[in-house]
Each structure stands twice: as C-alpha cells, then as structure tokens.
Design a protein around this nucleic acid. Structure first.
Length: 141
DNA sequence: GCCAACGTTGGC
DNA sequence: GCCAACGTTGGC
C-alpha cells in the first residue's frame, strides 16, 4: 500500500464534488506533468491519498482511494497523458492546513513542502500517519 | 494581483 | 544538448 496526495483548486473541483460522484469516483484528468503522471502510473487499486485544496483553503480536507489504474486521459488526444480514477473515502475530522504541515518538523521533508508545485505527490507512511493524527484520525486508515 | 519557483519549449 | 524565453502553478 502506498500513499499519495492530490491537489485541486476547490472552485474548479472540490472534495464535495468528488463525494457527489460516489463509489464510481472520477478520473483525475488534466495532469500535464511527467512527474505527476509517473506517480499515477505507480498507483495501485486501494492506495489511499489526501485530497488537498490549493489556492483556496490551503488544507487537506479528505481521504480518497484509487479505484482504477492509470489509463489514457480522455481529455486529450495526446497519448502521453494518463490518469487514475479516485473516489472519496471520508472527510478528515479536522482539516490539516499547509501552515500546520510547515510548522511540524516531522513533515519538513514532505513533498507538499519541498515540491510545492507538484500536483500529484507521494506521501511516506510516517507522513501519512502524522497528518492523520493531526487530522484527528486514529488509527490512521 | 503579484511574483517566485520551476517545468517546458524551441532556436541554435 | 544547452540555455534563454516563456507559461503555469500556487502561496501570499
């Protein structure tokens, strides 16, 4: 099991919108960055991730699950771009702010801090547990 | 709205 | 293959 973080601007696509898609989830399309695409290629069914609101909110608000392996992104004809499907699992009891992540020395090496612009990021297991703890989720899923 | 960071593009 | 120009992201 690996852990990830998905960024989205909530006025474009929010966690509530993903929840509205239910069990079927939604393809995480529109990614046009090789590193983010490679991260999606590495995902397996059942991998978990945080859903992070960028620009507005600046906080992780929910947990998502990968429900389809990487496949062609249907929003482009360019065969280079692929995406997975994700679905909402649950809200975080207490959203975790970017400022909280930055203030926590245990999370200093988290991609959210070191690779700010990467839209699909890996999360280490220790980081996953720490952010879940901060979010009021025990034990971590 | 600004601007720094950084990924991508294209000329050479 | 280098690197300058350019575009985009995302925090502030």
């Amino acid at each position: 099991m690996n852990y990830w973080l998905f960024k989205s601007e909530p006025d474009v696509f929010s966690f509530d919108m993903l929840k509205a898609k239910g069990k079927a989830g939604e393809q995480w399309d529109g990614v046009r960055n090789y590193q983010a695409r490679n991260n999606m290629r590495a995902m397996k069914i059942g991998d978990l991730g945080f859903f992070y609101h960028s620009n507005i909110g600046l906080e992780a608000v929910g947990i998502v699950e990968v429900c389809a392996l990487a496949h062609h992104d249907t929003t482009t004809d360019d065969p280079r771009w692929e995406c997975v499907d994700i679905r909402a699992v649950r809200d975080l009891p207490k959203p975790v702010k970017l400022s909280d992540v930055k203030a926590n020395p245990k999370l200093a090496k988290m991609s959210l801090v070191t690779s700010m612009r990467l839209s699909v990021q890996p999360v280490l297991e220790d980081e996953w547990r720490e952010v879940c703890r901060m979010a009021g989720l025990h034990p971590a899923p």
